[in-house]
């Protein structure tokens, strides 16, 4: 098992005592693609970031088991975590602007990420960067390698980000709403690209999104989160057979080209879902 999580809890202090944002989440993941879906605030990012111990300073992390490739994350020190983050497990966030260095060219950043994990000359690192840009299907890698982040469109920036995360040959890629800011065409292209690369390299992928049908196209399994818990887990192909009323509600409230409705269904929440 690459990732093994049992009974994960993430809590924050509040004036009224500790408040749990993630409440007893369990996930085990091999070389496969897991989608985590749910509304904003449901605990998706905190769950995924717990694997990298990248949590806000005021968060308290607890679990019965939290391991990455057998390494006990709860017990690991900062140095051990640095050997995992960005090397064995990469994180791709919604806005590449926050993750790319604004004063370094795209090619330079990818080469640097490559050298952090491979021994090789500057020249080999440059060649590897070009190769990675080509792998993320950038048509003109030589030009993009010379570009600074602000010169790239949203979709292009996201491809550069993926190339950078792939450079050290990680075993796990966590993509936290990687395409929410992009339009449908670019979004589908980027997700398809990640799906292909992950499959080809035998990596694991955690894809976080609030778009349930979208995620189901690119993952093997989908975990649906609500108020800090996984309320339902499904094989991606079984989405239409979802039974939890929250999952059904998420599917029902989407407008669809193929099924016109005079009025959209809204989600009627049940206190029992967050009990």
């Amino acid at each position: 098992m690459l990732v093994d999580i049992a009974n994960l809890r993430v809590t924050f202090p509040t004036p009224r005592g500790p408040s749990a944002a993630v409440r007893g989440v369990s996930i085990s993941l091999g070389a496969e693609k897991l989608g985590i879906v749910g509304e904003s605030g449901s605990g998706k990012s905190l769950t995924a970031r717990s694997i990298l111990k990248l949590l806000p300073g005021n968060a308290t992390l607890a679990a019965d088991r939290l391991s990455f490739d057998g390494i006990d994350i709860l017990a690991a020190n900062e140095r051990a975590m640095r050997a995992i983050r960005g090397k064995r497990a990469g994180l791709i966030m919604q806005d590449p602007k926050y993750s790319l260095n604004p004063v370094m060219t795209a090619g330079g950043q990818i080469a640097e990420a490559w050298r952090a994990h491979h021994k090789g000359s500057a020249r080999q690192a440059r060649d590897a960067a070009m190769d990675l840009l080509a792998q993320v299907q950038i048509r003109d890698p030589a030009r993009v390698a010379q570009a600074y982040p602000h010169e790239l469109s949203g979709g292009m920036g996201q491809r550069v980000m993926i190339a950078m995360m792939l450079a050290p040959d990680p075993e796990l890629l966590i993509a936290d709403e990687p395409t929410s800011a992009l339009d449908a065409t670019v979004q589908a292209e980027i997700l398809r690209l990640m799906e292909d690369l992950v499959a080809r390299r035998g990596m694991a992928l955690i894809l976080i999104s609030h778009d349930l049908p979208l995620v189901s196209h690119f993952c093997d399994r989908v975990a649906v989160m609500y108020a800090g818990r996984i309320v339902e887990e499904l094989r991606a192909g079984d989405l239409t057979r979802a039974t939890h009323p929250y999952t059904r509600g998420l599917l029902d409230c989407l407008p669809a080209l193929s099924h016109p409705q005079p009025r959209l269904k809204v989600l009627v929440r049940d206190a029992a879902w967050s009990a």
Partner: peptide
């Protein structure tokens, strides 16, 4: 655009 949108909205 229509084809992509229709494919993406179907869960399978």
């Amino acid at each position: 655009l229509r084809r992509l949108s229709t494919e993406l909205e179907e869960p399978e």
